[in-house]
Design a binder for these strands. Structure first.
Lengths: 344, 344
DNA sequence: GTGAAAGCGCTAACAT
DNA sequence: ATGTTAGCGCTTTCAC
């Protein structure tokens, strides 16, 4: 690999001039330098740049699970923006574990210029420390208790409220909720907003209708199984994210029940096959790839611009995709016929 | 951040000794060094290590589309293995574009120690060049014309053959195929094996039954639409990957047709909701996360072990998940009633 | 087994 | 606007 001094020599200038040219400063002999760079096929050595300048041209993307289509989509959005820059993306999965997240952050922070993070819990110590060391953090999907961070979110309250109203409008009152953990933003916000919207209409789900699961498929499955086995099962259920909805639907199928005849289901996040299910799934949809792109752009802004006085908090709208998995409640009591079946 | 010389000073040894200790060499004063490292919270600066030693502690993962559940799953597998090592993962999407792939490879190669690649086409120039510079390449899902690369694959031939036999066994003879591009391994192998298996049974699909699409949802949709509009539509179709199967199913739905009454569908790759579809989707399944983990392990082996004389070619088995989307062919002619509908 | 010292390729003062 | 030069933090001869 050619070095900067070879370029300098060939162009008849100093290494400093080449270096300046590289970073976009105005240079008189720009053309000569350019030619030398071309001819030698010169590419700067990132490690040397990093060592000297502290810039790594890398951003970490830390998410609970890249296998969740929502985060995969976010990652794609981020990638599409950073692709056009010299910044590359380190990908890390936290598995929704606060401990793993902390160790990943500690480990990766010194190697990157900034972090795009979907935190497992709302504890801000690590992020605060990292930002304090001059590395911008952009939160995605989830906030921290400390509201001073840049973030790209969706209107969780609006979405959960719309879900509640949709069920209410159809005449449901025995409404259950499979929530995510209350320790992160979307979990808590969707839980609160959904229950508040029900309360406004005079509906208060009993404790056994309020399942707190973990945003994972198995959690959704188990929660739904518990709901269906209740002496008085609900007539409708709201699943607070995509993968729990999958689990929920599998539980319904394994119980030999059908949607929406026996129970109405509405999910947060669309599923790729949502419209192909029988019945097509009613969901609260949100622009995931756009969120990723927004997070990427915000990160670039911070990377270039220095510290802002006020955090940027981008909230994107959700929309209700009313398909056919929600219908008016049945009048008769629900009875479970059987259990078992395929479950991943 | 503490430096190695601070550690050396505190431990009363030279920086060389600390450095040796760090890389696992036997050192007499190991305990003293360890204590100093602990007390100072010392962490080596990767940039300095890279500059000096050429080791980056980074591996690139270059895939066509992280949004494809198969690749997301592979990424998770890779991540789970590398997490326990000092190596981090750069993620890049090629969008199935050979040009983009080439520029990404060129750009990222100097920053990493190795590359896990699912190539868009079978051209091996860039990979050869990169390997020639001492960076191991592990292919995943797809091979190159040059068979000297390490790779982690699935039994495409076995899978496609099983799919063909399944349809044949049900009594189909008007069998169509929505193939991936013939310029990459799974595309070509599945195409060839499927047709060969049919030929063995005396079935030769006419050219209009052989759709060459692009492994994308829209491609699967359009291909299926063309098939369904044929004067004599097929009674069964094999979709060569997950996202094309989704497109295919949407096309069937939009044509107001139903599976398997009007047409049987079998897909390569399971879908998360595959079993929840009506009817549950019959698929050729493969162990994607395990493939990722295998690729990660193979990469680590190469990273530690130096160049092997013979490439490692890991081929994992597929299995047929016979659910209900394939049934014996109908006897009557198929007629399209209508079109239109929701399509992403 | 250990230390001294050179230098990886680059950037950022500083000087001009 | 450009050149000179020190040195970022580490690994690795080389000598002992």
């Amino acid at each position: 690999m050619a070095t900067i001094s070879e370029v300098a020599q060939r162009a008849g200038v100093s290494t400093a001039t080449v270096s300046r040219h590289l970073r976009g400063e105005r240079v008189r002999q720009a053309d000569r330098v350019l030619v030398a760079i071309e001819e030698l096929g010169y590419r700067p050595t990132i490690a040397a740049q990093s060592l000297r300048s502290g810039i790594h041209y890398a951003v970490a993307m830390v998410v609970p699970d890249i296998t969740n289509p929502y985060f995969a989509s976010v990652a794609k959005g981020v990638e599409s923006v950073l692709r056009k820059t010299p910044y590359r993306i380190f990908l890390a999965n936290t598995d929704e574990s606060p401990d793993l997240e902390e160790s990943i952050l500690r480990e990766v922070a010194p190697r990157v210029d900034g972090i795009i993070l979907a935190p497992a819990v709302e504890k801000e110590e690590m992020p605060l420390k990292i930002r304090g060391e001059g590395r911008p953090i952009v939160l995605i999907d989830r906030e921290l208790s400390d509201k001073s961070f840049d973030s790209v979110l969706v209107d969780n309250v609006g979405g959960a409220t719309a879900a509640a109203r949709h069920l209410l409008d159809l005449g449901h009152s025995a409404i259950a909720l499979i929530s995510g953990p209350l320790v992160n933003t979307p979990g808590r916000l969707r839980y609160d907003a959904f229950l508040r919207a029900l309360a406004t209409a005079g509906v208060t789900p009993p404790p056994q209708y309020r399942e707190i699961a973990n945003f994972r498929e198995a959690g959704g499955y188990e929660a739904m199984m518990r709901l269906l086995r209740l002496p008085e099962p609900p007539t409708a259920v709201f699943c607070a994210n995509n993968v729990m909805t999958v689990g929920c639907l599998k539980a319904v199928a394994d119980s030999r029940l059908s949607v929406p005849t026996d129970i109405s289901v509405i999910g947060f996040d669309d599923l790729d096959l949502g419209m192909l299910l029988n019945p097509p799934l009613t969901v609260i949809d949100r622009p995931s790839e756009e969120q990723g792109a927004a997070a990427g752009k915000l990160m670039l802004e911070r990377l270039r611009g220095g510290r802002p006085d006020v955090p940027d908090r981008i909230v994107m709208p959700t929309r209700l995709l009313a398909r056919a998995s929600c219908a008016p409640p049945r009048r008769t009591r629900l009875t479970i016929t059987s259990g078992g079946g395929e479950m991943s």
